[in-house]
Design a binder for these strands. Structure first.
Lengths: 197, 197
DNA sequence: TTTCCATCCTAGGGGCTCTAGGATATAACT
DNA sequence: AGTTATATCCTAGAGCCCCTAGGATGGAAA
């Protein structure tokens, strides 16, 4: 009997590929085992359970997405950086829909696993440094980061769910949305504390 | 033997309640049946299968959310309407997380069922009419609608997934985000066609 | 060569989905 | 009121998935 040579990494990658093909929710132990030419019980040597596998896929995806964004924004600033950042984000989501979905599911991931993954923290740093050129100060900076993430994620999620009718291509809207976000960052409104109207 | 008095509506509502409690993905025929005091096979008289049930929950949620938004924005315009619209959206998502998730899953819903549901179409109309006060013309109007939906959905999705660290409350960011969107709509950038830099 | 351990297996319990076919409550009709 | 008809709900059972327990075996170290 030839050993399949399983490792946590290979199982996770197989799960990630499956997620991209059939959807993150359809990632199943049985199917992953089938693809690896192995009985499903064998996977439990490398992965605690399905939830654990899903968490690992999520972390893998977060890291991959972060790397993409880091590469895309390297050496850029201002609008160039914003556009590169946003396009890297959207491209990753479109190329790896299952992995991308994984990054957004509120699953309980093993904390020590998260600690080892560089993705999430680095992603935050990247976003802040990208916004540096716009000269925002806290707490506006945090708010701006959150608005950007919200809009990026919301757009790709709606696009993936078929939420945009076909009259106008999502691509056209995307380009204009980035214009809008750029001008928004350049003219971030002052706080309206005590300004009732 | 006393009849349980099942109908498609009662099954759908039970499913929606279950979704809010345990998450949309965890909505199961067996559990819905259990709650209704019925064997799971009995549900198939009223609902084709799980996918069908999920689709009905999604349509129910879409309608409910639309009604909320319609009530909230009635008689308002400009910033007032924008804020009311956004808050109604977010409040619905937070009160009914399972139902809200349902509205975002790209499931294949029975087309004739969709045709009977007034929610989706009305939601689009509401958004357009809310933006009327900002004086945008097509295609900017469509783009603005999409940006708003993206930001609203992205924000509540990230908030629900615990995507915002605890340094600053999501509520504070939300208020500022609405400010930002308002000013963005008032100063929607002109198209940069043929404007390379 | 022998030992040993990680890797992979078989066996099996429990849950969920869905179909087929049978019983019965309720409403309609005579 | 008695009968009929239909929708409602049931039992039985097959198939798939998750996961555990415990047994075999490949491959590397002694």
């Amino acid at each position: 009997m030839v050993r399949a040579g399983l490792t946590v990494e290979r199982v996770t990658i197989a799960g990630a590929e499956l997620a991209d093909e059939v959807g993150f929710e359809q990632v199943t132990m049985s199917e992953v085992a089938r693809r690896l030419g192995v009985k499903d019980a064998s996977l439990y040597t490398h992965v605690r359970n399905v939830e654990d596998l899903r968490g690992r896929i999520a972390l893998l995806a977060a890291d991959e997405k972060t790397v993409r964004i880091a590469e895309a924004t390297a050496g850029r600033a201002g609008r160039d950086a914003l556009v590169a950042f946003a396009n890297a984000w959207r491209d990753y989501a479109r190329e790896h829909p299952g992995r991308y979905t994984a990054t957004q599911t509120p699953i309980q991931i093993d904390p020590e696993l998260v600690a080892k993954a560089p993705g999430p923290r680095r992603a935050v740093e990247l976003t802040y440094s990208m916004l540096r050129a716009y000269g925002l100060a806290e707490p506006d900076l945090t708010d701006a980061v959150r608005v950007l993430r919200s809009t990026f994620h919301g757009f790709v999620a709606l696009e993936a769910a078929g939420g945009f009718a076909h009259e106008r291509s999502p691509q056209q809207t995307w380009v204009r949305a980035l214009d809008a976000l750029h001008t928004l960052l350049e003219h971030w409104p002052p706080s309206r504390e005590g300004d009732p109207k």
